[in-house]
Design a binder for these strands. Structure first.
Lengths: 147, 147
DNA sequence: GAAGATTGATCGATCAATCTTC
DNA sequence: GAAGATTGATCGATCAATCTTC
């Protein structure tokens, strides 16, 4: 089963599909992360927002959240709707600019983020442990080239 | 134990986020592929269905399409709705089993698939050319381990 | 009862349009 | 007019429920 260095089978995989293998592997990894997070009631998207708020150490305007999450503002609007409905985050007015609305962590949101981070850390440790230093360097090189 | 949350150090590149770098790189690559396909009026999902039909060389039942695409049946129902609306695919009855509905390529669908494949091939060539044999082998090894 | 397909709900993401406040 | 947030439409994906046919 662990025939490393060789792709599974001839018929199943085209000759030079390394790029697609990479995408497939990333997708599998993402599924694993989503599954782990689902175990604590989170998704990658939700955990991402909570983590950004924890890291910031303060309530952030939704547009700032969108900028840090590298997504569109309306996405954050809806994500925060769901986080708020679950009691993980709270919308608070900005006294200095009445256009702005900040998202503030609730204690439950903080706890949930920690639980999610623990899940991800376990998988990440697993991932890292499976690679030698040399291989990590090679992969890093590839990653840089893909930027 | 480990204090998680793992504040990503001070600078821009955290210490051991290789896993997240991989996901990010895959996402960037996927965006590149989607953008290229959008240039010929396709998405990865649509191109995937069309390619499966081209490879099969015949009309396929929707559930077979779902199996090959490794997705849920209802996803194919909707994808085929859109492909059909664009005239790339046609729904045809199965005379042998009236429960079954097959998706059949139209000539336009066939042309579109070819155009999409050309876009992807160009990017793939670019990707492959950027890596040495040794690095390709390392990456393949990592990919296998992620399975 | 099980298989094939569809429908309706939800999530995450985008885009275009709109509303309020600056 | 531009910035911040929201709403409504669409895409791609999942799940649960339903309908028809086997």
């Amino acid at each position: 089963m662990n025939q490393i260095g060789e792709t599974p089978s001839r018929d199943d995989s085209p000759p030079d599909n390394l790029m697609f293998s990479l995408l497939e592997a990333a997708r599998a990894l993402e599924t694993r992360l989503e599954t782990a997070l689902a175990g604590v009631g989170l998704s990658m998207a939700k955990h991402g927002v909570l983590t950004t708020l924890v890291d910031a150490g303060e309530a952030l305007p939704l547009s700032e959240l969108a900028a840090r999450q590298k997504c569109v503002r309306s996405n954050i609007t809806q994500l925060v709707d769901r986080l708020e409905a679950e009691g993980l985050v709270r919308r608070v007015d900005d006294p200095d600019d009445r256009r702005s609305i900040r998202a503030e962590l609730t204690p439950l949101g903080r706890d949930r983020q920690a639980a999610g981070a623990a899940q991800l850390a376990a998988i990440q440790a697993d991932f890292t442990a499976s690679l030698s230093d040399a291989k990590r360097a090679t992969i890093r090189g590839m990653l840089d080239r893909l930027k």
